[in-house]
Design a protein around this nucleic acid. Structure first.
Ligand SMILES: [Mn+2]
Ligand SMILES: [Mn+2]
Ligand SMILES: [Mn+2]
Ligand SMILES: [Mn+2]
Lengths: 140, 140
DNA sequence: ACAAAAATGTAGCCTTGGCTATATCTACAT
DNA sequence: ATGTAGATATAGCCAAGGCTACATTTTTGT
C-alpha cells in the first residue's frame, strides 16, 4: 500500500502543527491590539481578554519571550519584538480576511465573529489567496 | 467597562473548547472510515492514518472509551458506540460540506483537502447552514 | 507446530496549557 | 506618607497529547 502524499496523515500533521501555533498567534494579535489601544499590554488585560486566569497568561508570556516574540521586565507590561509584530500583523490580516469571507458567503455576523477566531489558524496562504480573489470578484 | 457578550473572551473560549474536541471528532470519523473499509479499526491503522506513534493512539482510544464513544477488548480492534457513530456521522457531513465550500469558493483541491481537516472543527451549525445555502444557490 | 513478524499493551518521560493559593510588589487615595 | 487595592510573580497541581523503550500476545509463513 502506502497512501502517498495527500493522505490522512499529512492532513492531520498539518492540523496539529497549526493547533500548536494558534495560541501564539492569538496572543501576539491581542498584545498588538492592547498596545495600540492603551499604549501597553498588561498581564491582567491579556488574561481578561483571553478568558483565562492570570498565571496562565504569565506562562504564555514566558513562552512568547522564550520564542523571541515578546519582551517584558518584572512588574511591567508586555511588548512585542519585531518578530512578534510581524506575526501579529499576519494574524490580523488573515483574521479580517476570513471574517470578510464568511460575511460575504452569508454567515450571520455573530456566528462569523465567533467562528473566525478558530478558523483563521487553519487557512493556508493558498486558501487565503483564493478568499481574496473571491472577495474581489464578488464584491464588485 | 465590561465588554459584554461578543467580546474577545467569548470567541477565545469557544475556540479553545473546539480545539479540545477536535481530536475526538477526528478519531471517531477515522474509526468509522476504517471500519467501513476493513470491517474493523486496528490500532496500528489508526496510528498510521493519524501520523502518530501507536501508544499515542492507544491513549486516545482509552479516552474514547472513557467518554463512551468507543469500545474495545484487549488485542482486538476498536469499535464505535452509538454515541461514537453519531459523532462520526456529524463530523463526516461537516467535513464534506466544508471541503465543498472551499472548492466552490475556488480554493485549489490540494489546499482545500489539507485546510478542511482543521477548519471543520470551528464551523458552527449556523455557519454550516450558511455554507449549505451558499452551495445550493451557487451550484444550482 | 513453531519461529519470526506484527500488533498491542504498559511504563515512564516530556511539553503545553489550564487551574488555585499565596507572596510580593506597585499604584492610588486619603 | 502610608495603607489598601490592584497587579504581578511563583509554586504546585492536573489532564491531554506527544514520544521511546520494552513486554506481551497474536498472526503469519514455512
Ligand atoms: Mn484565533
Ligand atoms: Mn484572531
Ligand atoms: Mn479534522
Ligand atoms: Mn475530518
Amino acid at each position: 500500500m502506502g497512501e502517498g502524499p495527500g493522505s490522512h496523515a499529512d492532513r492531520f500533521l498539518k492540523a496539529r502543527s497549526e493547533r500548536a501555533s494558534a495560541l501564539l498567534e492569538d496572543y501576539t494579535e491581542l498584545i498588538a491590539d492592547l498596545t495600540a489601544e492603551h499604549g501597553e499590554a498588561r498581564l491582567v488585560d491579556i488574561a481578561r481578554a483571553m478568558g483565562i486566569a492570570h498565571p496562565t497568561a504569565a506562562k504564555a508570556v514566558s513562552r512568547l519571550k522564550r520564542e523571541g516574540l515578546a519582551t517584558s521586565r518584572p512588574y511591567r507590561g508586555v511588548f512585542l519584538t519585531e518578530a512578534g509584530e510581524a506575526m501579529a500583523e499576519k494574524a490580523r490580516i488573515r483574521h479580517q480576511l476570513v471574517l470578510d469571507l464568511l460575511l460575504a458567503i452569508g454567515v450571520p455576523a455573530e456566528a462569523a465573529d465567533l467562528d473566525a477566531e478558530g478558523i483563521e489558524h487553519h487557512v493556508s496562504d493558498e486558501t487565503l489567496a483564493a478568499f481574496e480573489a473571491f472577495l474581489k470578484r464578488s464584491g464588485g
